[in-house]
Structure formats: structure tokens, C-alpha cells
């Protein structure tokens, strides 16, 4: 028989209690009812700890308390996975730990997706999303896709490592109002530009509004390749998408006025934040 390996880490209880007390003081969910707040914390820690066998239990627990699926995705799930990202960046987490947390996210999204789609009341337009060729990252794009669906869009998710030609084919087939490119690597972000070039070359640029997003993407990059909007996170991407089909529906893709309107949304958000802060 192979060796039995101990994978539990020891920790200092006193340290832990101190951390918990400190965190409570500045809790981002202090406004929520106590029982929901506890569940949010449990779910967040479930994702950080990568205990994916239990994720569904906590998700169900939250749903029973009447928490909406969208709140879960934008709330504890987002903050949980963001903490995992921070730990990875700081060399506190490595690939094994990150993979475990990713499993939690997949479990949770699998449970919530049908609910979010069912919430949708009206169809306000089609969005095509995909991770550009050469890039296999999935989770961020899935979150954006789900939030878009919840907001009333019909979302066609082309998956990961999508060749530019497949984006073109999807635009021709589904006639979307918006196309979103995701890229998580500095080495693959160029493909966003290449895909956009092909869209222009095929004469489809005016028909679609192009959104870009992903960890290495910035507004500057969006401007550089000539995309219409940059989504710093899923919520703002949805807000911009809604504006595109609503009050800005007369503007075509690539129109400088559209670009300016998108930047205006970012500014409003900043102002709103500043006003609260």
C-alpha cells in the first residue's frame, strides 16, 4: 500500500480568531440579514478552500433563504474567486489550490445557470461571446455570459480558443448586437485585435458592437485595437451592453459616439462610487 499522506495544514486557532474578528468589523455584508450573511461567508470560504463537494449544499442553502442567483454570482462567488486570484498572485496559492477553487465555481455555476436563464423575462437582443484563439480560460467569460443572459440577452457562447473565422460565422448566423472577446493572457490578447480586424475585413464591423475583457485587458488596449467597450467586470459589461441595445441602439459598431458613451458609463460609475465613499 502506498504511503498515507497528510495534507491538512496546521493552524493557530488564536490567529484565526483574530483574523475573524478583524474581518467582521469591516464586513462587506454587514447590511444583510445575519443568517444570509453567515451563509455568504461560508460560501465564500468554501470557494477559497476549494471544498467543491460541499458547494452545492451552500448554494442551495442560500437559495432557500431567497437569495437571487444573480446576487450569489456577483456577491460571495465573485469575492471568493477574487481572493483565490489574489492568493495565486501573491504565491500563497499554486495551481493545485486554484484548480480546486475552479471546481467549486463550476459546480456553483452549473447549479445557478438554469435558474438565471429562467429568470429572464424578455429577449432584448443576442450577444456572442468567446475566448479568443489560443486561450483556454473559461470562468470569467462564463460569468459574463450568465449575467448577460440574466439581463435579458440571448447569449451564444462559442467556448474557448475560438478561431476568428468562427466568430465571423457566428455573427452571420445569429446576427448578434454585441460580440465579446475574452482573453486571459498577454500572449493571447493580440488575438482580440486580429479577430476584430477580420470582422472589419468581412464588412461586419458596423453591424456589431465589440466588447473586450479579461485580466490583461484595459481601456487603453480597447482603444488601441478599436473595440467599442471594455468591461472591467461582469456588472459593468452588462450595464454597457444594456445601454447599447437601449438608448444607443441607433449607433453602429465602431462609431466614436458609441465609444464616448461607453466611457461615460465608466465615469458615472466612478462618480457614484465617489459619492458613496
Amino acid at each position: 500500500m502506498p504511503l498515507k499522506i497528510e495534507t491538512e495544514k496546521e493552524f493557530d486557532l488564536e490567529d484565526l480568531q483574530y483574523d475573524i474578528d478583524e474581518t467582521r468589523k469591516t464586513d462587506r455584508w454587514n447590511d444583510a440579514p445575519t443568517d444570509v450573511k453567515e451563509l455568504f461567508h461560508t460560501l465564500e470560504w468554501n470557494i477559497i478552500d476549494g471544498e467543491h463537494h460541499e458547494t452545492i449544499t451552500f448554494i442551495n442553502g442560500c437559495l432557500e433563504k431567497g437569495v437571487s442567483p444573480r446576487t450569489l454570482v456577483a456577491g460571495p462567488m465573485a469575492t471568493g474567486i477574487a481572493e483565490v486570484g489574489r492568493r495565486f498572485k501573491m504565491d500563497e496559492y499554486f495551481l493545485p489550490e486554484v484548480m480546486m477553487s475552479a471546481k467549486c465555481m463550476h459546480e456553483a455555476l452549473g447549479r445557478l445557470k438554469p435558474l438565471i436563464i429562467a429568470e429572464k423575462s424578455i429577449d432584448i437582443g443576442t450577444v456572442v461571446v468567446g475566448t479568443v484563439q489560443g486561450d483556454l480560460h473559461d470562468i470569467g467569460k462564463k460569468i459574463v455570459a450568465m449575467m448577460m443572459e440574466a439581463a435579458g440577452f440571448t447569449v451564444i457562447d462559442l467556448g474557448v480558443s475560438v478561431p476568428p473565422e468562427d466568430f465571423i460565422a457566428a455573427i452571420r448566423e445569429h446576427k448578434p448586437k454585441i460580440v465579446g472577446f475574452s482573453a486571459l493572457l498577454t500572449t493571447t490578447m493580440n488575438m482580440q485585435g486580429e479577430t476584430l480586424k477580420l470582422i472589419k475585413k468581412e464588412g461586419l464591423r458596423e453591424q456589431v458592437k465589440v466588447f473586450v475583457g479579461g485580466a490583461p485587458i484595459s481601456q487603453a488596449w480597447c482603444d488601441k485595437i478599436g473595440a467599442d467597450a471594455y468591461g472591467a467586470d461582469a456588472l459593468i459589461a452588462v450595464e454597457k451592453a444594456k445601454a447599447c441595445v437601449d438608448r444607443l441602439h441607433n449607433l453602429s459598431g465602431g462609431d466614436p459616439a458609441l465609444h464616448a458613451a461607453m466611457l461615460q458609463i465608466d465615469r458615472q460609475r466612478e462618480e457614484a462610487k465617489a459619492a458613496v465613499g
Binding site: 502506498p2 504511503l3 495534507t7 493545485p96 486554484v98 471546481k103
Partner: peptide, 20 residues
């Protein structure tokens, strides 16, 4: 590639026998 990393946490006994 995608699976081996979580196996360090989820299937350490198997991984030990496999690497042996």
C-alpha cells in the same frame, strides 16, 4: 494537465503509487 494538479489534493494516495 487540468486534472493532475487537483489530484495532489484529492487523490494523494493514488498519486504516490503512480509516481512510485
Amino acid at each position: 494537465y487540468a486534472k493532475i494538479f487537483s489530484d495532489f489534493i484529492e487523490s494523494p494516495e493514488f498519486l504516490e503509487a503512480f509516481l512510485t
